[in-house]
Simulated scan of single mutants.
Amino acid sequence: MIFHICSAADWTGERYRAPSLDTVGFIHCSDLGTVHLAANAAFAGRIDLVLLEIDPARLDVPLRWEPGDPPHPAGIWFPHVYGPIGADAVVAVHDFMPGADGVFLPPAPVARP
Rank of each mutant, 00 (worst) to 15 (best):
L21R: 11
V35A: 08
I47K: 12
W11A: 09
A8V: 07
P84H: 05
V91G: 08
P109V: 09
T34E: 07
A18M: 03
G68W: 06
D60L: 15
A92V: 08
H36C: 05
D95E: 15
A74D: 14
G45M: 07
P56F: 11
A44R: 14
G99R: 07
G102Q: 02
R112P: 00
M97T: 13
P79D: 06
A18N: 11
V35W: 08
F3A: 10
A87S: 14
A100V: 08
P71G: 00
F26H: 15
F96V: 03
N40K: 05
A108N: 12
V91N: 10
I27E: 05
I2A: 03
D10R: 15
G86Q: 15
P79R: 04
E66F: 01
H36R: 03
G45I: 01
R64Y: 03
P109E: 12
F78S: 03
I2C: 04
A38Q: 14
A9N: 12
A44L: 12
D22N: 14
L32R: 13
S30P: 10
I54C: 05
R58I: 01
R112K: 07
P70W: 01
H4F: 01
I2W: 02
P98Y: 01
E66N: 03
I27N: 10
P73N: 11
G75R: 08
H28F: 13
V93D: 10
G25T: 11
M97L: 12
V91S: 13
L37P: 02
A38M: 13
V24E: 14
P107W: 05
F96R: 01
D22M: 10
I47C: 08
A74M: 09
I76E: 10
L105H: 12
P67M: 11
E53S: 02
D95L: 13
Y16V: 06
I54F: 05
D10L: 08
L63Y: 07
A57K: 11
G86H: 15
S30Q: 09
V35K: 10
G86N: 14
R112A: 07
L51Y: 05
P84Y: 05
P70Y: 01
N40C: 03
P56N: 12
A42H: 15
G86D: 15
D10H: 14
I47H: 11
V50D: 00
S7Q: 14
F26V: 13
I54A: 04
L52Q: 06
G99I: 02
P56E: 13
F43E: 09
L59V: 06
D69E: 11
A100S: 12
L21P: 09
G25H: 12
G75C: 04
D95V: 13
V50G: 00
F96T: 02
G75L: 06
P62G: 08
P19E: 10
I2G: 03
A111I: 09
D10I: 01
P98H: 04
I54Q: 04
A108I: 02
V24D: 11
R46E: 13
H72K: 04
A111E: 14
F96S: 00
